[in-house]
């Protein structure tokens, strides 16, 4: 399969200042630090990691909502990394994003119809009959009633607001949609509706998803392949069944072992499996040298503290950055 979007050696640094007023030092936070990935047409790539790992930053970089510090992005084979905003407009139609917080992402003073119509107007449509018709079709597609058009966001529940956010993202008929934690702010009984909706829409509109989440169960359910991020780097990528059944990176193993059990009968075995990884994620401002996971890794070796592991591909389609895999 050909790649819809591809990134090579992508980096995003943020400047920061820290310390007291007089002894203030400045530094660079490497939120995304040398990430390469590709997403094929029609595929869902899941992106998991804990807070501060850079997964949302990576999602925004890919669709150029923010500018990369280094690296290249190719969309349908064309480099879009440094293309000026004006020339990017056609590509932008094809790349949209759905945000986590359906409360904060919608303008509270706009009617639902105007919210969904706005992207069309920005891309040159007129506020006329055919455009309104497109909005009605979108509402229908995401499962909202026709009369939702004339209401304001606060009149809707969280799940319905997320449907409005989805309608707004899809009204331009994009090819790639970055879903940034689209269900984590929703009640459990509503999450499944939105996950099902995203899957249905993917089939109907032939969408490609980058699905960003911290919930490994949801990511496993919706993705074809899954990438695991830790402190700005992708540490492992594989087809989802392969990744969950045979995780190679100790961090991936720890993440999977930390998922709460689905049945109380598995409590004891789950606990035994996760006993070895301890501590919190280190600050991204001062990531550990060598392999960034070495401070928490139960299998840490001398080389891990000194040298950063390179990405290897021990099995076809299964990439991992870990000294254990290289040495075995």
């Amino acid at each position: 399969m050909s790649a819809l979007i591809e990134a090579t050696a992508l980096e995003k640094h943020f400047a920061f200042g820290e310390g007291r007023l007089l002894s203030r030092r400045s530094g660079r936070l490497r939120a995304v630090d040398g990430v390469s990935l590709r997403i094929a047409h029609g595929e869902t790539l899941g992106l998991v990691g804990e807070s501060g790992c850079g997964k949302s930053t990576l999602g925004r970089l890919l669709i150029r909502l923010i500018e990369p510090t280094a690296g290249a992005i190719f969309f349908e084979g064309e480099e879009i990394t440094r293309r000026p905003t004006k020339a990017l407009r056609e590509k932008r139609r094809a790349m949209q994003i759905i945000f986590q917080d359906p409360y904060g992402a919608l303008n509270p003073r706009m009617r639902v119809e105007d919210i969904i119509m706005e992207p069309l107007l920005i891309h040159g449509a007129k506020s006329d009959g055919p455009t309104r018709q497109k909005v009605s079709e979108m509402l229908n597609l995401v499962g909202l009633p026709r009369h939702a058009r004339d209401r304001f966001p606060h009149e809707f529940s969280g799940g319905q607001r997320q449907r409005i956010g989805i309608a707004r993202a899809l009204v331009l008929r994009p090819k790639l949609v970055v879903c940034d934690e689209p269900v984590s702010a929703l009640d459990v009984s509503v999450q499944a509706q939105i996950v099902n909706l995203l899957q249905d829409l993917q089939g109907e509109l032939r969408l490609t998803y980058l699905f960003i989440a911290h919930d490994l169960s949801v990511v496993k359910h919706i993705s074809n392949r899954v990438a695991v991020m830790y402190l700005g780097k992708i540490v492992e990528v594989a087809e989802k069944r392969e990744l969950y059944a045979k995780p190679l990176h100790p961090y991936t193993q720890a993440l999977i072992a930390a998922v709460p059990v689905a049945h109380p009968g598995n409590r004891a075995s789950a606990r035994a499996a996760r006993a070895r990884v301890s501590g919190d994620v280190p600050s991204a401002l001062h990531p550990p040298a060598g392999c960034r996971f070495h401070t928490r890794c139960p299998y840490v070796m001398t080389i891990c503290r000194a040298e950063e592991p390179k990405i290897t591909e021990p099995r076809a389609g299964h990439e991992v950055a870990c000294h254990l895999v290289g040495s075995s």
Binding site: V188, S189, Q191, A192, Q193, V195, N196, Q199, L216, S217, V218, K220, H221, Y244, I256, V259, A262, H263, N266
Partner: peptide, 14 residues
Amino acid sequence: CVPSLEQDKARLAA
């Protein structure tokens, strides 16, 4: 309605 790591479901029972 929740997906599980232990069992694959084609579609969630929302």
